[in-house]
């Protein structure tokens, strides 16, 4: 009987720990977080790409755009734009928004075409 009580006690503790972790991560998420831009959901990433594209459209600073995109994918910023375009298409972005993003993609591609790694 003692053994069964001990096992029950341990199981209760383990369940409590699991519940406590879930509670803590659910309701105290900002205490310690390492969540970065790469962890954003696809629709937020698409909006991020749109913002980068808009800024690029205004200042023409491809280096800055690439730096911002590398926050999501340091290896392949072009892919970030392409995925953003796909998501934007699925979500029915406006034509002018798609064009901003497409222009950014073209800008990055042209840099690749000139032999530079984005």
């Amino acid at each position: 009987m003692r053994i069964s009580r001990l096992i029950g006690f341990i199981i209760a503790i383990l369940l409590g720990v699991a519940g406590g972790l879930a509670l803590g991560w659910r309701y105290l998420p900002s205490q310690v977080t390492t969540t970065g831009l790469q962890d954003l959901r696809a629709d937020y990433q698409a909006d991020y790409v749109l913002m980068v594209a808009e800024v690029y459209a205004a200042d023409g600073n491809l280096e800055n755009a690439l730096t911002l995109l590398k926050e999501i994918n340091p290896e392949n910023p072009l892919r970030v734009v392409q995925e953003g375009l796909l998501t934007a298409q699925q979500m029915g972005y406006e034509t002018w928004e798609m064009r901003y993003m497409a222009d950014l993609e073209i800008g990055i591609r042209s840099q690749v075409g000139q032999g530079e790694t984005p």
């Binding site: 519940g19 406590g20 310690v32």
Partner: peptide, 14 residues
């Protein structure tokens, strides 16, 4: 046991 576990869990999560 459950209460102890929850406290430990919350502390761990932080």
């Amino acid at each position: 046991g459950l209460i102890i576990g929850v406290l430990v869990g919350v502390l761990l999560s932080m």
